[in-house]
């Protein structure tokens, strides 16, 4: 991560010198740091709401019930979460919310799942295998209906925007499976 950070910024400066776009780059630094804070703050409301709901489900025992149903298949993907029921059910909720295109609901479940995994983590700054697998499948962005994209296409007057659903589903499934595959292969190389 350190190298990616340094490399991306330095390469941008070099390109900015070549292209004469240094003024835009300086402007981008100011604007994007502002934007980052705005995004984080705008998450507070929906995050608090879902974490509140999750806490009710946790205390009433609904989470345990849900995790027992979903546990078996998920444990194949996340073998080190055998003793971590809460993480399993939050992962399941995150994946289902993502699949349904409910991004706002998916993020709090995902963060909660990460926290559950972090509780059992020995080295708090070092990601575990399950964390990496979970992150990789989240970045693959599996979803059944790409609602936002379809909204944009139909707003611009495409005759039949639902024609992209099947191709998108095929592609996102391939990306999801390869994210799983790569994280399993690579976890042995990165200790």
């Amino acid at each position: 991560m350190n190298y990616i950070f340094i490399f991306l910024i330095l390469i941008s400066f070099i390109c900015a010198i070549i292209n004469g776009t240094m003024a835009e780059v300086v402007d981008a630094i100011l604007k994007s740091s502002q934007k980052a804070v705005e995004i984080a703050l705008s998450l507070i409301g929906i995050m608090a709401f879902w974490l509140g709901m999750v806490n009710i489900a946790k205390k009433s025992g609904l989470m345990d019930f849900f995790s027992n149903i979903i546990k078996k298949p998920l444990l194949k993907i996340f073998p080190d979460l055998k003793e971590n029921n809460e993480a399993i059910s939050n992962i399941a909720l995150n994946i289902s919310a993502n699949a349904l295109g409910l991004m706002n609901a998916a993020t709090p479940f995902g963060i909660k799942a990460m926290e559950n995994m972090q509780e059992k983590n020995q080295n708090k700054e070092h990601a575990t295998n399950s964390m990496c697998t979970f992150l990789a499948i989240n970045t693959a962005g599996f979803q059944i209906v790409p609602a936002v994209v379809i909204a944009i296409l139909s707003a611009n007057g495409m005759e039949n925007p639902s024609q992209i659903i099947i191709p998108t589903l095929i592609v996102t499934t391939i990306a999801f499976i390869s994210a799983l595959f790569f994280s399993k292969i690579l976890e042995r190389m990165f200790k």
């Binding site: 941008s12 400066f13 390109c15 994007s32 995004i39």
Partner: peptide
């Protein structure tokens, strides 16, 4: 976000 914004702005 600064990384990605700078990369895009630089061309």
């Amino acid at each position: 976000m600064v990384c990605t914004a700078v990369l895009r702005a630089s061309g």
